[in-house]
Amino acid sequence: MSAELIIHRAGPALSVQDLGRPGHMAQGIATGGAADRLALMEAAALLQSPKVLPAIEMAGLGGTFSVTAPSRFALTGAPMRATLDGEPLGWNESHVLQPGERLEIGGVSEGVYGYVTFAATIAQPQWLGSVATQAGLGIGQLLAEGDTLPLTGDPDPEEPPRRLPKPDRFKGGILRMMPGPQTGLFSTATLQRALATQFTRDAAANRQGVRLNHDDAPFPADEAASLGSDFITQGDVQMTGDGVPYVLMADCQTMGGYPRLGSVIPDDLPMLAQAPLGAPIQLQLLSQEDADALWQPDSARLAALRSKAEVKIRDPHQIRDLLRYQLISGVTAGDDLDRDDA
């Protein structure tokens, strides 16, 4: 049976994302994938999936969805107004969508990028091992009203809904940065000044990069005008010709000639992706050894989140269609009536 996800209404920047396609720098392809990778891991934890599943990334505004086969789904990343047939849904939780029901997702209340991930698994054809969209670079396209996506089917629709604690990455903060190949082109005074500067997230921010605003003088580098184009990695803090910093994000270019102050470590990029306009941002320089010691595989991040994703015990008054819920699950924990933490 071929199940489908139907998109009845789409915000202006909806795209399918996974963890991207590493290993294709030689063809000029950045890894790409979700702007907030942690949100995809949170979704996998909520859905008890052993691996990260493709998700729909929603920048600022969501859409309306239905499915032709039952599927659990997780709502993660920037919290958005969400309803299921008109009933409000909790964010950073998993829920079940039945055929005939409408999932409506509105605007963000905090942060920038919200995600809806279906356990039934979006089964678009992969390209170079990934379904990630880089619409601005000609890889895939944004989703539009009327689109349908193939689903493979929920492997465990009886698995109970779960919740995770509310994340704390929607208000800016400190970006930990390691030295990069061009750090030495900046004078010590310029570097120290950048580290002491209180930046704010500029209006210029997208999947390619986030511009940081400040009132101070620009941050120039030696030899910048004639520098040969060199490799860029996600997180690089690039100073354009006028000395204004951009932090490069998921769909960044793979090479460039503007000098980079350093590289923000991957663990801090979800916070920057989710920082709203005007949010305070500060740079902190780690030694290369300290930055290397902070490396962790995605499997470790996912395992940590899985242990936090607890089963929701709900107030029966707030369970929609209670009869069906009990018939499907058959057994409850027995303390449902004593709990009011839905």
Binding site: M25, A26, Q27, G28, I29, Q134, L137, G138, I139, A225, S226, S229, F231, T240, G241, D242, Q253, T254, M255, G256, G257, Y258
Partner: peptide, 26 residues
């Protein structure tokens, strides 16, 4: 080299007179 964007070539080198820096603004 191929880079910046997918499949995108850096081409060179042109004669000496083309030694002009990148613009300071994008």
């Amino acid at each position: 080299a191929i880079g910046f964007a997918p499949g995108q070539p850096y081409l060179g080198y042109l004669p000496e007179g083309w030694q002009v820096p990148r613009q300071s603004s994008l």
